[in-house]
Simulated scan of single mutants.
Amino acid sequence: MTDYRPAAREDLLDVALVVAPRLLGARLTTLVDGQRVCVRITEVEAYHGLGTGGVSDPGSHARMGQTPRNATMWGEPGHLYVYLSHGIHSCVNVVAGPAGVAGGLLLRGGEVIEGADVAGVRRPAARLPRDLARGPGRLGQALGLRHPIHDGIDAIAGAAPWPPERAGAVARLDLAREPVRDVSRGPRVGVAGVAGTSAFPWRFWITGDPTVSVFRPGRGAVES
């Protein structure tokens, strides 16, 4: 059985590309309006903001600098950047890097290990348990996190101590004490242009895990 410990801000102070593999096998637990769900993270993608790291990231929401939409990415690590994709899906990122250095770790896939009944009500279209949180929109829905009301909630201090069941939302991130050994790496899913090619192998996943997304290239993401 995997042993876990509460995540600390220090665990997330490196840039997103460095932190990304550390989240594989971690748990993100949410308590939303009294309903608790826990997801074991199996797939993540790293995104950097303007001036972060040695390579500009054209696929990032923060590539042009800070805006009202991406402000959470520029804050202290451990908060959740929840954004709306295609006007429908609430997607969840764990913020990485020191305050003022934008970084996001998009949670692309996970296994629901607690609260599957709750996640199933939120995700009635899921045909199999593996599909409850397979893909970033599905994962956000299974956890009950919604844009804009949950953007910026703290997955570290915000859940210490873990509160009794009540209205509202809290989140808690726990890291596996032993890192996942079998990790794959490749291009990000559905990202347009060069940012979605092998020039940016910024997606990490647990090799062979059934909850990992199917890779699909983004528009114009053509290998040279």
Rank of each mutant, 00 (worst) to 15 (best):
G135H: 02
E43Y: 04
G109L: 14
V101C: 14
G135R: 02
E43K: 08
A71L: 09
R123Y: 10
G100V: 14
S56M: 12
H86S: 09
G51F: 04
G65F: 03
R134P: 04
M73E: 07
R69G: 03
Y83D: 06
E45V: 05
H89S: 12
Q141P: 01
T67D: 12
D131H: 14
R134W: 02
L132W: 02
Q141T: 11
T52Y: 00
G87F: 11
V55C: 08
E114T: 09
A133F: 00
L132R: 08
G75E: 12
Y81G: 01
A102T: 01
R123W: 15
R123M: 14
H89R: 14
M64E: 09
P58N: 12
P68A: 09
H86A: 07
R63G: 08
L84T: 02
E114L: 10
A99Q: 15
A133K: 01
R134C: 06
G59H: 08
E43F: 05
D117A: 15
T72G: 03
G49S: 00
N93H: 14
E45S: 05
P129H: 12
A142C: 12
G78D: 01
G59I: 09
A125C: 11
P129F: 10
L106M: 15
E76C: 04
S85K: 08
S60Y: 09
E111T: 14
I88C: 04
G65E: 03
V95D: 07
V101G: 06
Q66I: 13
G144T: 01
V95N: 07
L105E: 13
L105I: 14
R123F: 14
V95A: 02
Q141M: 09
C91I: 13
T52F: 00
V92W: 02
A102C: 04
H79C: 08
A133P: 01
G137L: 10
P98G: 13
G109T: 14
G54M: 02
A125P: 06
A102L: 07
P136K: 08
E45T: 05
L132P: 03
T52S: 06
